[in-house]
């Protein structure tokens, strides 16, 4: 089973974030970056499927030069090859633009399955996987908790709300968005990191892929939410105040 797994590089979780005045994105010059955590679960799932069914895992990422680091991590953990869509203006793309670029690169591969994380830890749109499936014209399922592959078909466990799960079946090839927590991602071992030095990372540009994108949405402004405190005194007798409190808990806080 040949599997393409999409990996994104995002600001490190413990990076101190600074937002320049009026900017639509954080200042990236003095922070560290890491593999998007949800993509780590997709990568692990891809590696496990390969180990069970054979084939190869190709890690695809898009972004500036530094984003190759996410591919290298995938190679160190056991992916066979990497494809880097080199794009310094990656941050200007909306999910549709990202999906178009990824789809164009993935179409060049011979694959049975495409895996993505559920969403990215930076933008958190959670749309790229779905759009990618649409652009590739393939069946798609999200929030995957278990994958059973047999005879060219997939039996999938999806996580619904309130503790409910759903089993669905799809034919291959397909695109899946993996739920975080589906597995325990492996570490990149030191030998794996050494072995990855010899693995190939192909570089493609947006021009080479023949993709032109015009954003359908853009970020106006980003800001840190302001913490506010509001205290309301409920007046009246104890009985009246209690009745008002119950009303508020029912209709405003919606906890009753």
């Amino acid at each position: 089973m040949n599997i393409v797994v999409c990996v994104k590089q995002v600001p490190a979780k413990d990076a101190p974030l600074a937002i320049p005045e009026g900017a639509a994105w954080i200042r990236e010059t003095d922070i560290g970056f890491e593999l998007n955590e949800p993509d780590g679960y997709a990568l692990e799932e891809a590696l496990r499927l390969k180990e069970k069914h054979g084939g190869e895992v190709v890690a695809v990422s898009m972004g500036p030069e530094r984003s190759k680091q996410a591919i290298k991590e995938a190679l160190a953990k056991g992916a066979e090859r990497g494809v880097h869509i080199s794009d310094d203006k990656f941050y200007e793309l909306d999910p549709l633009g990202s999906a178009r670029c990824l789809a164009a690169a993935i179409k060049r591969e011979k694959f049975d399955l495409v895996l993505t994380g559920l969403q990215s830890d930076d933008h958190g749109f959670g749309q790229t996987g779905v759009l990618l499936a649409e652009l590739l014209g393939l069946p798609h399922a999200t929030i995957i908790m278990q994958i059973d592959a047999a005879d060219g078909r997939l039996k999938l466990k999806r996580e619904l709300e309130a503790g409910w799960f759903q089993w669905v079946e799809l034919p291959l090839p397909a695109v899946l968005s993996i739920q975080s927590g589906i597995n325990k991602p492996r570490y990149a071992t030191l030998k794996g990191i050494m072995a990855a030095k010899k693995k190939e990372i192909a570089t493609l540009t947006r021009a080479e892929l023949g993709v032109t994108v015009s954003p359908t949405q853009r970020i106006e402004r980003i800001y840190v939410p302001k913490k506010t405190k509001k205290t309301e005194i409920l007046t009246g007798t104890a009985k009246e105040a209690a009745a008002k409190l119950v009303e508020k808990l029912k209709h405003e806080a919606r906890v009753l």
């Binding site: 413990d14 990076a15 290298k72 570490y187 030191l190 990191i193 030095k197």
Partner: peptide, 29 residues
């Protein structure tokens, strides 16, 4: 609060991608 990366002088710019990857493995472990 989990440990936050300590780097005042952009020390990381002295490291290669592989070196950062090795550190990441050890730190995650």
């Amino acid at each position: 609060m989990p440990f936050a990366h300590v780097d005042y002088i952009d020390f990381d710019s002295l490291l290669t991608d592989d070196e950062k990857l090795v550190r990441r493995t050890a730190r995650q472990f």
